[in-house]
Computed example of a mutant assay.
Amino acid sequence: MENPANIDWLPGALADHLTSFGGQLSNTSGQMTALEWLEAGATASYGTVSEPCNHWQKFPHPQVLLLNYLQGATALEAYWRSVAWPAQGVLVGEPLAAPFGR
């Protein structure tokens, strides 16, 4: 994977990954956390806080996330609408970012 710090981030960029503990912000297991996306330049990210197994409902559905975000929803609204089981995850970054809002 390319180093996230080497990516040219656009304003309002969202970034996620499918690791087991991306939402554990003080993670010491060696996995990348959602905070590292912010440090690299992303505006917001979402990560799970417990072993996700392979339940797709715990992760943002990309089509739903991007459709809502591009239609003007805030990052928080877009993530909330795209994660079916949000109880095992955490959103980090700027929740009110809405670069496509009117």
Rank of each mutant, 00 (worst) to 15 (best):
M1T: 04
M1I: 03
E2V: 08
E2S: 00
N3M: 09
P4G: 12
A5E: 14
N6W: 09
I7W: 05
D8F: 00
W9N: 01
W9A: 02
W9G: 01
L10T: 07
P11K: 02
P11N: 01
G12V: 09
L14E: 03
A15R: 01
A15I: 02
D16P: 01
D16F: 14
H17I: 02
H17A: 09
T19W: 05
T19D: 05
F21Q: 02
F21P: 00
F21W: 08
G22Y: 11
G22A: 15
Q24S: 06
L25P: 07
L25N: 03
L25Y: 07
S26W: 03
S26Q: 12
N27I: 04
N27H: 07
N27F: 06
T28C: 03
S29H: 07
G30C: 09
Q31P: 09
Q31L: 14
M32C: 12
M32F: 14
L35Y: 10
E36D: 15
W37L: 09
W37Y: 15
L38W: 08
L38T: 13
E39T: 15
E39D: 15
A40L: 11
G41C: 06
G41K: 02
G41A: 06
G41S: 06
A42E: 05
A42Y: 07
T43N: 05
A44G: 10
S45I: 12
Y46G: 01
T48V: 15
V49W: 01
S50N: 11
S50M: 10
S50P: 01
P52S: 15
P52W: 11
C53P: 05
N54K: 04
N54W: 11
H55D: 13
W56A: 12
W56R: 08
W56C: 02
Q57R: 02
Q57L: 00
K58S: 00
F59Q: 13
P60A: 09
H61L: 00
H61E: 04
P62R: 01
P62E: 00
Q63A: 02
Q63L: 02
Q63T: 02
V64N: 00
L67C: 03
N68Y: 04
N68G: 13
N68S: 11
Y69C: 08
Y69I: 11
Y69H: 06
Y69V: 11
Y69Q: 05
L70Y: 12
L70F: 14
L70G: 08
L70N: 03
Q71L: 06
Q71F: 03
G72M: 11
A73V: 02
A73G: 00
A75V: 04
A75S: 06
L76T: 01
L76C: 00
E77S: 01
A78Y: 02
A78Q: 01
A78F: 03
A78T: 04
Y79H: 07
Y79C: 08
Y79N: 04
W80A: 10
W80R: 08
S82A: 15
V83P: 09
V83G: 07
V83T: 11
A84I: 13
A84F: 09
W85K: 13
W85Q: 14
W85T: 15
P86V: 12
G89Q: 11
V90R: 15
L91A: 09
V92P: 03
G93Q: 07
G93V: 11
E94R: 12
E94G: 06
L96E: 13
L96N: 13
A98S: 15
P99I: 13
F100T: 13
R102H: 06
R102W: 03
